[in-house]
Amino acid sequence: MSYITLDYADLAIAASLVLISGGASLVLRLDIERRLLIATLRMVVQLVLVGLVLKALFANVSPLWTGLAVVVMLAVAGREILARQSRPLAGFWAYGLGVSTMAVASTLVTVFALTTQVAPDPWYHPQYALPLFGMVLGNTMTGISLGLDTLVTSLTRERAAVEAKLTLGATIHEAMRPNARQALRTGLMPTVNAMAATGVVALPGMMTGQILSGVEPVEAVKYQILVMFLIAGGTGLGAILAVLAATWRLSDPRHRLRLDRLAASRD
């Protein structure tokens, strides 16, 4: 097995494909050439920067710098969770609840993998820690944002039903259970679908990358299966923590539904 290095001329040739799409947009007046250009530039600049950052991190393996990269990734993913809520919690909780549950779930799962299954030396080596953490984090972020958004949307829409159960003497947990269950199902659905379809509909990107870099297919598959388990674990743990924390925040010890703890509606 061999690894084929690309030089910048190769990339320039491939970039002509984007130019063809841009040309088609101009000729057919699709009005998308500007956005295509900006997106292409962003993609190139962002990836080059990430490459440089990773190179620097790999050059001096330090728990401090690796940890800093993890914190930055968490902070950005936390903002993304917030942006995906049609109606977030009010105040600190809007950002804090999503980012803290995501941090606990994705860090636990990644450290577990790094200290037992992958076990590089040292365990926090950024070459292993950051790619694994990134994959777990991205999926956990999706699971948490879907779970939280579904929970809040359904509680807001079905407020009368939840309160009807309360007025008949149900506990707030009984009253919210169908909503919490629905939120967890929705949060876990992308992971379940991805596991069910993987290898049949599409080859996973990480496995494809390892095969391109010369790894034996069976070895690449083993890594992909490990990553799928980690993603399932991170998404499940993250969604459960986030939905439970949100049901706790949206209720109180007198078994009330506290939708007043949501931020004011955006529409």
Binding site: A164, T167, G169
Partner: peptide, 20 residues
């Protein structure tokens, strides 16, 4: 008393009752 017990004793019927 726990809130659920209270609401069982003091039954509230909203103008538009909810259904689940």
């Amino acid at each position: 008393m726990p809130a659920p017990t209270w609401r069982k004793e003091v039954g509230y019927l909203p103008a538009e009752p909810g259904w689940w």
